[in-house]
Structure formats: structure tokens, C-alpha cells
Design a protein around this nucleic acid. Structure first.
Length: 264
DNA sequence: GCTGGACCTCT
DNA sequence: GAGGTCCAG
């Protein structure tokens, strides 16, 4: 067990409950999740207690991002200021691109509890058994699954998207290599995959491919933007231009704040 | 490039 | 109705 004193702002609960990852759950005050085939346990009081080392934390939770600098750059008005104050310390996570891609293909026209259920099922049925739980299924493992098996996991009409995308990735599409491409180029590649439109592509770019200018537009974000900044035809374009190179952080603060505090 | 309808599944 | 995408027109 590692005890780590962080000098940078970090709020574990906000980060893990903000809807960017689907395989973490909280036992008492300890978060448990499987990342890269490893069971990670982590809790936060004044310091971090974790089964993983500091290097893992820095990479996975993007502690190398200068959060204060980023937040001050997106802190343009009262509408974003409130989420920033309330959720201060929330960070984007650097996920595995493949897991992120399949997770967000499952997210279309769906809700978070069901997304989690589908992913749990896929891991149990097609993931390598580990000491505690299951690894996320490999592209090859999902390629060998029948549509019927996928659908039994609760994927619904997304079964064929998953199967076809797995086939393409297993055939040699290197998702990680998209990190070296521009936002625009990487997005073009992603949007050729079945089940991947603008929104899913932007989630994968933001949460796993280091494209912090990505601005995923779901119904919540559209509601926020229209409510705060008036009707505009192109919400994504507006968000990226208004908030700049860290638009993705602005997006996620708005999104999570809207989900937790914006319900009426 | 834009618009409207269908779509698994479960509350 | 739920964190959209696909297909036609």
C-alpha cells in the first residue's frame, strides 16, 4: 500500500463519479476498479492511500495537467465559475482507448446504470478472469462473440456496432496511435467506426486520446449551452471556440454539475 | 451537410 | 425517456 501526499488539487470522488469511467465502485470509503488488468484500490482523506504507485496516479488521473492553470483559462463567466468552484479538483481520466471506445458505443441512447451493467456483463462473459474480477475484453475476444451472445449482455441494437468495431480494431487499427494525430484527423478515423458519431468520438478523444479540446455534445451539454449562452446552431463549435484549448475540461465540469445539481 | 424516424431494454 | 447513431430523402 502506498501513501501519497499530493501537492496538486485532486478530488477523487468528483473524478470517479463524473460519468467518464464505468468500472469503478465504492466500498465504504475505498474506491475499487480494474485498470489494465490490475485491481486498484484507492481512498482519499488528507492524503491518498492506494495499491498503485505515484506514477500510475499521475498518468491515470492526469495529475500532470496543471489544473489551476486550466481552470483559470476556462473560467470565463458565472455559469462555468460555479461548477469550477463546486467540483474543484475534478480531473479528466486518461483511460485505455479501446475500453473507452466500447464503453461509449454502449452509451448511445442509454443511461449510466445500464451502461455499467452492459460493461460488467461483457467483462464477465468475454474478459480474462483475474484474481479479483475480470479484465476488459480484448478486441479479439469480442470478435469471437456472436451477436446473440453480445445481445444477451444487454447491448441491444448496439451488438453489431460492437462486433464490427472489434473486428476493425482486431484487424490492426492502432487506437493509441491516434494520440499522435491532430484532433481533426483522429476524429475522422474514429467516426468511420460503426456506432461512433460526433458525440462518442469526442468522448474517446477527450477521455483516452489526450485531445483536451474535444467537446462532447450530449443532451445535458446542449441544455447548458442553450440555457447559459442562448440558442446556437453548433454547440460543439461554440464550446471549442469560447473555452479554447481546454474546452474538454469546461465541458466535463458543466456536464457533471448539470447532472448532479442541475436537475429540477 | 441537414432533418426526421427507428432503434434494444428496462424503469 | 435514457449521455446517439444510422439510414433515407
Amino acid at each position: 500500500m502506498h501513501y501519497i501526499e499530493l501537492e496538486r488539487p485532486f478530488h477523487l470522488d468528483h473524478t470517479l463519479t463524473s460519468g467518464q469511467v464505468f468500472r469503478w465502485h465504492k466500498n465504504g470509503n475505498v474506491w475499487e476498479g480494474i485498470v489494465n488488468d490490475q485491481l486498484i484500490q484507492i481512498s482519499q482523506k488528507s492524503t491518498i492511500t492506494c495499491t498503485c504507485d505515484e506514477q500510475f496516479l499521475n498518468n491515470y488521473f492526469r495529475l500532470d495537467d496543471d489544473l489551476d492553470l486550466i481552470l483559470s483559462s476556462i473560467d470565463k463567466d458565472e455559469h462555468i465559475h460555479k461548477p469550477i468552484k463546486t467540483l474543484y479538483g475534478m480531473r479528466l481520466i486518461r483511460q485505455d482507448p479501446w475500453e473507452c471506445l466500447i464503453s461509449f458505443i454502449c452509451s448511445s441512447f442509454n443511461n449510466v446504470p445500464r451502461i455499467k451493467l452492459i460493461i460488467d456483463n461483457l467483462c464477465r462473459e468475454f474478459g480474462t478472469p483475474l484474481q479479483h474480477g475480470y479484465a476488459f475484453p480484448t478486441p479479439e475476444a469480442l470478435t469471437s462473440a456472436s451477436l446473440d451472445q453480445l445481445r444477451k449482455c444487454g447491448t441491444g441494437y448496439r451488438d453489431k456496432y460492437i462486433a464490427e468495431t472489434a473486428q476493425i480494431v482486431a484487424s490492426g487499427l492502432d487506437l493509441s496511435s491516434l494520440k499522435r494525430k491532430s484532433y481533426k484527423m483522429a476524429k475522422e478515423v474514429l467516426m468511420k467506426l460503426p456506432g461512433v458519431g460526433h458525440k462518442v468520438a469526442d468522448c474517446v478523444l477527450l477521455f483516452s486520446l489526450d485531445k483536451l479540446e474535444a467537446f462532447p455534445c450530449d443532451v445535458n451539454i446542449q441544455k447548458c449551452i442553450h440555457q447559459f449562452y442562448g440558442p446556437c446552431a453548433h454547440v460543439r463549435k461554440f464550446g471549442q471556440q469560447y473555452f479554447g484549448e481546454y474546452a474538454g475540461y469546461a465541458n466535463h465540469y458543466l456536464y457533471h454539475y448539470q447532472r448532479v445539481y442541475g436537475k429540477r
